[in-house]
Nucleic acid binder design. Structure first.
Length: 804
DNA sequence: AGCACGCCGACT
DNA sequence: GTCGGCGTGCTC
């Protein structure tokens, strides 16, 4: 009976977002399994594209199916679990199945397509000369602008030229040459006695293989470390002394580093309680979700490490997700030391080839522990015993392009599939997760004590910049901060200064009283639009004129807020000419490895002050740093985003933990125009629980998550009118489909109304229970299909992390 | 997405 | 009367 395959093809559109059926040729029946990639003809031109086999069946009769052209993999690249996960992801994120499948795999496995024009018959001389240049075929990309396009078209119909499609996948396996000898030592000695005395190279080679015990040696190693020449090895192979083979190798990015094995640390009581709870759930195959809430320095990582050890002891595997910026060499080292070769690391610093190799290592079951950023949630591990998400509140766990998945949700899905627990950890959990713990959907575990007794909590103080301003300080550095910095310079201790880049240059604030103009409808701050010379609300669209003086204190010192790290650096250098300053921002860390190098320099105490943006807040532990300064704690507070307090609190809490990690007392100085703001005062005291309760109250009043769900719809077009029109149309449709309890904000233009020469309009829906929502969103996508040709784009983002 | 078909305006 | 513009439909 003939077999047919159901294939998801690489055409990311709504109309093609379903399996297509193909005939499996007899000679491929063995090779084609569910989960392999194939090369298939598609469309009337029979162009060739990549596809994923998602199902196979035997059929009595087959009506004119096209046959699969080639198999791209020896083994399935997605197993049954990941196929199901892709389905789930496509459904919940409103994205295409093919896009989901591709995001699960290393990028080298995405096929590239090439089209060739082939000469097969009699072609006119001018075509021969000017198009083919006397060659048999030409790359279509090089000739597609030819003036003879229509003539070529005709020739194709006549059969004089043909089109050839090429599907290539770059997942190349790196190999190395190895040699060994199959001859006994006596034979080698015998050979040696018969060669010329002055054949030094040959003698050296034979000496080597006579004295060494048998085994494989890579040619590269022999040449580089044993002083043998490539030439003599080649000769030896030809003479039959050695046999040469190709071996697959992994590009191990850590191969030159030695990791000292380290052992588990002794846990304190709280840590032990947390570990026991997780371990028990692992052993009992329960798909619990734990939220581990532990202050900075409370030893969450040690709990993770020991929980993973427990998982490994039971013969299972584990995934550990870490935010991209925390995936530092320090983090990796810690895992490598504990688990050695069992660890595979996936992060953006690796080359495409290295990522592929790490992926293969996992897929071949050579690694049992996977540490990586967001996409490591797709690690093709089997028999998973535990999934950990560190810093679970980080927004980078949500992908901000299609498929807009949240790694946390997919981790929980996988936990459900494998019947294993998921451990979410943070010093400042997201309100969503903490609220679920409150409702016992997640199990709350808390660490309230610092793990090492000698670590002293830093003293945190707030500097009121309004008072500073009254004293005549107009720059970015307050008197107390400058004083502390000078003191550090004298004592040869180091300082870290953080500039909050979030929310730059988009709002107005009174420099006297810190007042920021709010929206009368939405209770969030208005954003300055220089194009329209007005203040706008991004939620409801409210618009008013730019105030000339502060409505509260009548001051005229209303300022447009915005400064860059570079400017701050210059200012600081002028104030402290003798200080050595290291600047770390997007500009200075663009190149690969520069991030790491800057930190190394600072760690080696080559500079006195490290000045940077958010990126310095993560996981840097320098014992000589005794001062942390936050230059502008409140910029993020004024962002038109209901999560701005949460973000500010998280950031400040995190940086505050950065000072005084050694035995020296640390000090944290927070400069702000809003010294009474709860996000700032509570962060000063590292008081997460109080913040949680306060913020939850506001969220309930404002009908924001976690009390309400949110979905954001964005429409974009090159012409503003078109985008606005469609957005209104969609908003109206949603309005009529949902219950009166649903709250629809907008449509409004996005703050950066024009990006990439396109205009963006958005609508946000807040809701609790809406049976029709999925249905209507699906319809909206379906209907927007016909507008794609006119350049309109519609995107749906469930639970968006950023509203600007 | 990309390819073919098909229906209208500007040319030989 | 043909060539080529791009609006529309379909892809196993």
């Amino acid at each position: 009976m003939p077999k047919i395959a159901h294939v998801i093809v690489d055409v990311p559109t709504m109309q093609t977002d379903q399996p297509f059926t193909y005939l499996i040729p007899n000679d491929m029946e063995e090779a084609i399994e569910v989960g392999v990639r194939v090369d298939v003809p598609f469309g009337n031109g029979n162009r060739r594209i990549q596809g994923f086999v998602v199902d196979i069946e035997s059929k009595q009769e087959i009506d004119n199916l096209k046959p699969i052209k080639a198999v791209l993999d020896l083994h399935p690249v997605v197993n049954d679990e990941l196929l199901l996960l892709a389905e789930e992801m496509a459904k919940t994120t409103f994205s295409f199945k093919i896009t989901c499948l591709q995001t699960m795999l290393p990028s080298v496995m995405r096929s590239t397509y090439k089209k060739w024009l082939v000469s097969v018959g009699d072609i006119p001389p001018h075509i021969e000369e000017e198009v083919f240049l006397g060659l048999a075929e030409r790359d279509w990309e090089e000739i597609k602008d030819t003036p003879y396009l229509s003539e070529l078209h005709r020739l194709r119909q006549e059969g004089a030229v043909d089109v050839r499609y090429e599907v290539t996948t770059k997942n190349k396996v790196k190999t190395m040459k190895v040699v060994q000898t199959n001859l006994p030592k006596e034979t080698l000695q015998d050979i040696q006695s018969h060669i010329r005395k002055n054949a030094h190279q040959k003698h050296k080679l034979l000496d080597f293989f006579i004295s060494e015990q048998t085994g494989e040696f890579s040619v590269k190693e022999l040449v580089e470390h044993h002083d043998l020449s490539r030439q003599v090895i080649k000769e030896a192979v030809e003479l039959g002394w050695l046999v040469q083979e190709e071996r697959e190798v992994y590009r191990d990015p850590y191969k030159d580093r030695l990791f000292q094995q380290d052992d588990a640390l002794v846990l304190n009581e709280e840590q032990q309680v947390a570990l026991d709870a997780v371990s028990q759930s692992v052993s009992a195959h329960q798909n619990d979700v734990f939220l581990l809430e532990g202050i900075t320095g409370s030893g969450k990582t040690e709990v993770y490490l020991q929980a993973i050890s427990h998982v490994l002891e039971e013969g299972k595997t584990a995934i550990m997700l870490v935010p991209e910026i925390s995936l530092t060499p320090q983090t990796v080292t810690r895992f490598k030391r504990r688990f050695g070769d069992k660890v595979a690391v996936l992060h953006s610093g690796l080359s495409q080839g290295e990522k592929y190799d790490e992926w293969r290592k996992i897929e071949r079951k050579e690694a049992q522990v996977v540490v990586g950023a967001r996409s490591a949630v797709f690690a093709p591990l089997e028999n998973i015993g535990l999934i950990i998400i560190d810093e679970e509140h980080e927004t980078s766990y949500k992908q901000d392009e299609s498929p807009r998945y949240h790694a946390r949700n997919l981790a929980i899905w996988r936990g459900d599939y494998h019947k294993c627990p998921v451990l979410l950890g943070s010093a400042t959990p997201s309100l969503e997760s903490r609220a679920r713990a409150q409702k016992n959907v997640y199990q709350l575990l808390t660490l309230t004590k610092r793990a090492s007794d000698n670590a002293i909590l830093p003293t945190v103080s707030i500097v009121d910049m309004r008072a500073e301003l009254k004293q005549g300080v107009t720059g970015s550095f307050s008197t107390p901060l400058l004083h502390e910095l000078t003191e550090r310079l004298e004592k040869k201790e180091q300082s870290v200064l953080m500039l909050n880049r979030r929310g730059y240059s988009s709002f107005m604030m009174c420099r006297d009283c810190g007042y920021v103009l709010p929206c009368p409808n939405c209770d969030i701050s208005l954003t300055l639009h220089m194009d329209t010379k007005s203040m706008k609300c991004h939620y409801c669209g409210h618009e008013e004129s730019i105030p000339q003086c502060c409505p509260i204190c009548d001051s005229k010192k209303i300022r447009y807020y915005g400064t860059g790290t570079q400017k701050i650096e210059e200012e600081l250098q002028q104030l402290l000419p003798e200080a050595k300053i290291l600047r770390m921002d997007v500009d200075t860390t663009r190149k690969k490895g520069s991030h790491e190098r800057l930190l190394q320099q600072f760690g080696a105490q080559e500079a006195d002050i490290l000045l940077g943006t958010q990126m310095i807040a993560k996981g840097l532990d320098f014992p000589n740093v005794t001062l942390v300064g936050v230059l502008n704690a409140d910029t993020a507070l004024n962002l038109p985003d209901f999560r701005s307090s949460e973000r500010t609190f998280q950031l400040l809490t995190q940086v505050s933990g950065r000072a005084g990690r050694g035995d020296k007392l640390g000090k944290v100085l927070i400069q702000t125009f809003n010294p009474e703001h709860y996000a700032i005062t509570l962060a000063k005291n590292q008081h997460y629980e109080a913040f949680y309760h306060h913020e939850m109250n506001l969220r309930r009043q404002g009908k924001y998550p976690p009390y309400y769900y949110t979905v954001q719809l964005v429409v974009s077009h090159e012409e503003e009118i078109q985008a606005a029109k469609k957005m209104h149309e969609i908003a109206k449709k949603i309005q009529s489909a949902l219950s009166p309890q649903a709250i629809i904000l907008g449509p409004t233009p996005k703050p950066m109304a024009r990006m990439n020469r396109r205009y963006f309009y958005q609508t946000v829906v807040k809701y609790r229970f809406e049976e029709n929502l999925n249905q209507v969103l699906q319809e909206i996508l379906q209907e927007s299909q016909k507008d794609i040709r006119s350049g309109l784009r519609v995107s749906i983002d469930m639970e968006p992390q950023h509203f600007i």
